[in-house]
C-alpha cells in the first residue's frame, strides 16, 4: 500500500492504494466518490468515465498510482457552483436521457469531453462518440437528444420535453 494524492473536483484528496488498485476503485472506495460506476471488467461500458487532466478516461483502465498528482473531474464535480445542475446534466433531465441512472455518470462525462472538442456535434458524430458508453435502458434516443440539446441544437420533433 502506498499513498496516492490527486486533486478531485478541485479538492486535493489522498488515500491508500495497492499497485494493482484501479483509479475507479480508488475513487469509489478510498475517496468515497461512488458516483463513478463499474459496469464491466473489459473496459467496454464507459460507466467509469472521468476526466484526468482534461481528458476523458475510462477510470477502470488506469491505475490509481498513474493518477498521482493529476487533476481529476468526476460526475460529482459537474454541477454549477451554486449546486444546480450543469448544462449537460440539465439537458439529460429535460430530455429524459437517463432511466436507472447507472450509465449516466459516464454518459455525462463523455458528453462533456465531446462538447469540449466539438461544440455542435451532428447526430452521427454523437452516436459515434458514445460508442464506448453502453446504456441498457434508454435505447440511446433521449441520450443523443440530450447531447444535441446541451449543445444548443434544435431537438423539436424528437419527443416530449420535461415540464418546468
Amino acid at each position: 500500500m502506498s499513498k496516492v494524492t490527486i486533486t478531485v473536483n478541485g479538492r486535493e484528496m489522498s488515500g491508500e492504494a495497492e499497485g494493482r488498485t484501479l483509479l475507479v476503485s480508488f475513487l469509489r472506495e478510498a475517496l468515497g466518490l461512488t458516483g463513478t460506476h463499474v459496469g464491466c471488467d473489459t473496459s467496454q461500458c464507459g460507466a467509469c468515465v472521468v476526466h484526468v487532466d482534461g481528458k476523458a478516461v475510462k477510470s477502470c483502465t488506469m491505475l490509481a498510482m498513474e493518477a498521482e498528482g493529476a487533476e481529476v473531474t468526476t460526475v460529482e464535480g459537474m454541477a454549477d457552483a451554486d449546486g444546480s445542475l450543469g448544462v449537460i446534466q440539465q439537458a439529460f433531465q429535460d430530455h429524459h436521457g437517463l432511466q436507472c441512472g447507472f450509465c449516466t455518470p459516464g454518459m455525462v462525462m463523455s458528453t462533456a469531453a465531446l462538447l469540449k472538442d466539438n461544440p455542435t456535434p451532428s447526430e452521427a458524430e454523437i452516436r459515434a462518440y458514445l460508442d464506448g458508453n453502453i446504456c441498457r435502458c434508454t435505447g440511446y434516443h433521449n441520450i443523443v437528444r440530450a447531447v444535441m440539446a446541451a449543445s444548443g441544437q434544435d431537438v423539436s420533433g424528437l419527443g416530449v420535453v420535461a415540464a418546468e
Binding site: T74, L85, F92, D94, L98, C100, G101, A163
Partner: peptide, 14 residues
Amino acid sequence: ASPKRREDIRFLTG
C-alpha cells in the same frame, strides 16, 4: 403531465 423526474437529480450528480 411530464414533470422533470425527481430521481434524476441524484443520479446526475453522483
